[in-house]
């Protein structure tokens, strides 16, 4: 078995054991998932993207994808990449968007010791200590912590030499791919169990066709995510991320909508687990650039290439 599969299987097992609805509910009430964080640290998942981890960076994103499958209430993308860019995993560090002298959309700022602010346009960022008194708390539609905080005196420039914004967007792509897969599985399971008119609703053609559409979107999202992960550290990385974030984001809307339709009123309750996954893909498709943002970026590049060369771009190996 190759390293990646071994990592995926290990992560799958550990996340299954330690992330259930109670953990998700508590995190969404604002309680930092301390036990889960300890499990992640004990297993070294938080160090997977570090240059000296001994693990291919692509494999780290494969683990992020598994975290997405479980709607893991820890900001794995921001933790893994913060440790990579700080070249340290000594303390909990997370990432947000640098806006002048503030950093926005920082997950669990109050629990972190350090925050990185990434400049989306300038491709660099700063590393700052965190002052708990000055945090403004906020959440996304999945009730995931997205706080704001000031850049403190003594903050250091990161000196990044890789496309940080695109890598963060890739993190969301990988998370969404895993999460969408899970939403399909939940929907299949529910359709097979729920009976109406004396038979499982999965036996109705209308339901079957909706789920076939969902399967198509999930498969496309999955393949697009794999392609973008494979493009890491390559020439076309930024454009592959653009294509993947656009495609996976589009799939997210279709899949979440149909999954709720299949689940009926049950899936609309807070008690059911479906919303932990659907609200996350709704949030994640808008974070680090939504479909419109990445479509435009990819489209501009292709317009620059011109009509006669556009096929050559699409047909390039990879």
């Amino acid at each position: 078995m190759d390293t990646r599969q071994l990592l995926i299987d290990t992560a799958e097992r550990i996340f299954s054991d330690h992330c259930d609805k109670a953990v998700l509910d508590a995190a969404e009430r604002g309680e930092f998932p301390e036990r889960l964080w300890n499990v992640v640290r004990e297993n070294g998942f938080h160090e997977l993207a570090m240059a000296d981890s001994g693990v291919d960076l692509k494999d780290a994103f494969a683990v992020i994808r598994v975290a997405g499958r479980h709607a893991l209430p820890l900001p794995m993308v921001e933790i893994l990449l913060a440790n990579r860019w700080l070249q340290s995993s000594a303390e909990l560090a997370v990432i947000g968007r640098l806006e002048g002298d503030r950093i926005a959309d920082v997950p669990w700022a109050g629990n972190a010791k350090r925050a990185l602010g990434i400049d989306w346009e300038g491709a660099d960022g700063v590393s700052t200590s965190v002052s708990v008194e000055e945090i403004g708390t906020a959440r996304n539609v999945a009730a995931e912590s997205r706080d704001g905080l000031p850049v403190m005196a003594g903050a250091q420039p990161l000196g990044l030499n890789e496309p940080a914004f695109e890598m963060l967007a890739l993190g969301r792509v990988a998370s969404m791919a895993g999460c969408l897969e899970r939403i399909l599985e939940l929907s299949l399971q529910y359709a097979n169990e729920r009976e109406q008119f004396g038979r499982p609703i999965s036996k109705f053609q209308a339901i079957q066709h909706n789920l076939a559409i969902v399967a198509g979107e999930v498969a496309a999202a999955s393949r697009a995510a794999d392609a973008a992960i494979d493009a890491l550290e390559g020439d076309r990385f930024a454009l592959e991320v653009a294509a993947a974030k656009a495609r996976v984001g589009e799939a997210a809307g279709i899949v979440a909508e149909s999954a709720h339709q299949v689940h009926g009123a049950m899936g609309f309750t807070h008690e059911h687990q479906l919303h932990h996954f659907t609200r996350r893909v709704w949030a994640w498709r808008d974070e680090y650039g939504n479909e419109a943002f990445w479509q435009e970026r990819l489209g501009r590049h292709l317009a620059g290439i011109g009509a006669e060369k556009v096929w050559d771009f699409l047909a390039t190996r990879g």
């Binding site: 496309a220 999202a221 393949r223 697009a224 392609a227 592959e240 653009a242 294509a243 993947a244 656009a246 495609r247 589009e250 479909e291 419109a292 990445w294 479509q295 435009e296 970026r297 990819l298 489209g299 501009r300 292709l302 317009a303 556009v310 699409l314």
Partner: peptide, 15 residues
């Protein structure tokens, strides 16, 4: 218009 081009391309690349 750029977004329309990008949307089509993103679909095509995945397919």
């Amino acid at each position: 218009l750029a977004a329309a081009i990008g949307r089509i391309a993103a679909h095509l690349m995945a397919l």
